[in-house]
Amino acid sequence: MKKIFMQELKMNLKTLLIWSLSVGGMGLACILMYQSMEGEMKEMADAFSHMGAFSDAFGMSTLSIATIKGYFATEVGAVHGLGGSMFVSLLGAGILSKEEELHTGEFLFSFPVSRKKIVAAKALCIALMTVLFTVICGALYACGFAALGEELPVKEFMTYMGMQLLMDLEIAGICFAISSVWSKTKTGLALGTALMFYAYDVIGRVVTDVKEYLFIGPFSYANASDIFSGTDISVKAVCFGTALAASCIIFAFMYYDKRDLAS
């Protein structure tokens, strides 16, 4: 199992570096642009905070984008949330199905290793890659704060990165379950799932009737504006997300163990 885990990690290392450096790099660039935009931000912040539903949806009614905290939460929060969810959805959706799609399944599954152990090795690989992605991006964002000479709001920052990690693990878990069902990688479905959750969160913050059910989406507990403005994280949303991720992973184990493998 260790060999399969290491091999999987090796094969996905390049993808991890590309995604983490791209998303983390974009976030870093956003942070570095803060000082050059600081002057214009004050007027913009006033305007943005009075745009009703739009301000609510993007957290600009609770945080001022003229401050580094507010700027990070609204700008980098969106980049990292979307980028991370897209990365893990693609990773999760392909990790099992690629063996059948690329016809390497007969090579891998002819070894004296149970399917459950192979699924476990791949699940662990996703978990580690998600952690590494979060750590690399987090380190780049922290470098951005340091480069500007701004104090990093450690508590909020760590909470945000931790919740983003949990959100990414939840989305990866859902896509891992998708991957266990099909013998072809469902890239569209995986990306669609991530984007649908993002859209659901944005809509949920605008439409009053949906607000009650916002906890269903993973973006609800990992929202940067909520975390940086000191709003309590919804325990209900975290529990629901954790339970959903666990259910999806258990489903993947059970379903993949029982089904026929395509040649």
């Binding site: 091999q7 390497t104 007969e106 090579f107 004296p112 040649s263």
Partner: peptide, 18 residues
């Protein structure tokens, strides 16, 4: 299955590797 596969050498009709 695992014990059996430890003693089996299998070659599929199409040889695919990473």
């Amino acid at each position: 299955r695992e014990k059996i596969l430890a003693n089996v050498g299998y070659m599929p009709s199409e040889a695919w590797f990473y």
